[in-house]
């Protein structure tokens, strides 16, 4: 089979998984919030509300798109793409499973295995900052502007913590290739979460801030800023912002799984069938996604100065010290 066809099939399958998970994450968010608040949640469209995401999509397509009079037309139209496309591109390096064999063809279950996979992921998740800030500024609305500014400030602050925690794992494994990080955990027989508990906790909290999720969702905190940077957006462009955010959550959950929970590995099982590996990966990722929802409906929101203080005065120093302790152990003891 020609390479291009294999690439197209893998990209199509993984992009499909990403979109499907994102669509059903919106339903899960509403269902979980309903359970936590002792309600039913969506239960009209299909059994158990299962067709709700499709109904939402159709509604988004047919809605009228309104742009405020003073908006910068080009930037206003472009911002949702700048937010969604980099967020979806990051999924390329996530290893969803081990080698897949179908007939003659054997290929790894990830779109691409780069030597610099972790770097690629950080670079593209960094690009996602442009969407909120340009969208917020271009809307010519005060709520949007404030939301956009806050989003960009908190995303860059927590990116440092994210990089330093990732580097602690990289120091242990000696590679930036995410698939090799997974296999190195299997070889050592212990998941990184047990070797690097501090980095794990910091990393998980930083992903919440990085994806603008509760309790750090200052970019769109409803009581103060209405919708934040997407206040003025409607129809499909609003949906793109939304989809970008959910895709970023899924990728971050997948990345946490890969770095700290042994990715597609199963404890005490050597060389599992690829279907089992894939299911293991999805189960672990789903666990983190549930954590995102659980935290949102359980914890109260921080204050913005608390968030910035936490990032710069607690997380950054602790992550630095953790990295250098790891480095010292690896360098001196080998």
């Amino acid at each position: 089979m020609p390479d291009v066809l294999v690439w197209l099939m893998k990209a199509g399958a993984i992009f499909g998984i990403l979109l499907g998970t994102a669509a059903y994450l919106t339903l899960a968010e509403r269902k979980v919030s309903a359970w936590i608040q002792y309600r039913y949640g969506p239960n009209r469209v299909g059994p158990w509300g299962l067709f709700q995401p499709f109904a939402d999509l159709i509604k988004f397509i047919f809605k009228e798109e309104v742009a405020p009079a003073g908006a910068n037309p080009l930037m206003f139209r472009l911002a949702p793409f700048l937010s969604a496309i980099p967020a979806m591109l990051t999924v390329a390096v996530i290893p969803f499973g081990p080698e897949v064999r179908i007939g003659e063809v054997a290929t790894n279950l990830s779109i691409v295995d780069l030597d610099v996979g972790a770097l690629y992921l950080l670079a593209f998740s960094g690009l996602a900052v442009y969407g909120p800030i340009l969208g917020g500024w271009a809307s010519n609305s005060k709520y949007s502007l404030l939301g956009g500014l806050r989003a960009s400030a908190q995303m860059v602050s927590y990116e440092l913590t994210l990089i330093l925690c990732l580097l602690a794992v990289v120091t242990l494994s000696g590679t930036l290739d995410l698939r090799e990080i997974v296999t190195s955990q299997a070889e050592r027989g212990v998941w990184n979460v047990f070797v690097q508990p501090v980095a794990f906790v910091l990393f998980v909290v930083a992903t919440f801030a990085e994806t603008n999720r509760h309790p750090f969702d200052f970019a769109e905190c409803e009581p103060e800023l209405v919708g934040g940077f997407h206040t003025e957006y409607s129809a499909m462009r609003f949906a793109l912002f939304f989809l970008g955010e959910y895709c970023a959550m899924i990728v971050m959950a997948g990345l946490t799984t890969t770095l700290f929970l042994g990715g597609f590995g199963i404890p005490f099982v050597e060389d599992p069938h690829w279907v089992l590996g894939f299911l293991a990966f999805m189960t672990k990722t789903a666990m983190f996604l549930f954590l995102f929802l659980w935290v949102r409906w359980t914890l109260p929101r921080f204050r913005f100065d608390q968030l910035m203080g936490l990032g710069w005065k607690v997380f950054l120093p602790v992550a630095l010290v953790n990295l250098f302790l790891t480095g010292a152990v690896v360098s001196l003891l080998g």
């Binding site: 291009v4 990209a11 199509g12 979806m88 591109l89 779109i111």
Partner: peptide, 11 residues
């Protein structure tokens, strides 16, 4: 890096 271009096209 070519598969990334394929993904970009799909997205």
């Amino acid at each position: 890096y070519a598969p990334i271009l394929v993904l970009l096209a799909l997205i």
